[in-house]
């Protein structure tokens, strides 16, 4: 093994790398489904970090086999927490995918910017205001091409 590259460095880098890859994917992707996948990757990293928190050299799985003297076991608490976290993640992902299906059916696109624009137009149409700059969220980075009134009508009417 290369000196300096200990097992712990590799494992921690894997966990953090997964989180970083996920976050980068969240920022870089334009397709909403890919963004959801990036989220899944980042979550895997966080879960791995949680498992590593309870890892122990030369220890066995925390299942009792005999009464009395026990061998060394890894920490059971992070394992239970990871079980919980994974199930939570599955629930949220399934929900995200079902929302994506509906968006795809309504808007026929899953591009992040297009979808956001269509949404803004629809909100403005529902509220009865012209689309204006105040609809930018405080840190939003949506490119806003001017939208004419009839475009608002067409897009807003599709709901």
């Amino acid at each position: 093994m290369i000196p300096g590259f200990t097992l712990e460095l590799i494992l921690y880098s894997t966990a953090l790398g997964l989180v970083s890859i996920g976050l980068a994917g969240l920022v870089l992707s334009h397709h909403l489904f890919r963004i959801v996948l990036a989220l899944v990757i980042a979550e895997a990293g966080a879960n791995l970090m949680l498992v590593l928190a309870g890892y122990r050299w030369d220890a066995v799985a925390p299942i009792l086999t005999t009464l009395g003297e026990q061998p060394q076991m890894v920490d059971p608490v992070p394992q239970a927490m990871v079980l919980t976290a994974i199930v939570i993640g599955v629930g949220i992902q399934a929900l995200a995918v079902s929302i994506l299906i509906r968006i795809r059916q309504r808007y026929h696109t899953l591009d992040r910017n297009e979808v956001a624009e269509l949404m803004d137009a629809e909100i403005a149409a529902t509220a009865g205001t012209a689309r204006d700059v105040s609809q930018e969220a405080p840190l939003g980075e949506r490119p806003i091409p001017p939208i004419t009134d009839d475009a608002v009508q067409v897009r807003g009417g599709r709901s």
Partner: peptide
Amino acid sequence: LGFMLLSIAINLDFGTPTM
């Protein structure tokens, strides 16, 4: 972010959790 967290995490005791 990943690098910063890594530099922090590497100081953790690995393999010998406090339990």
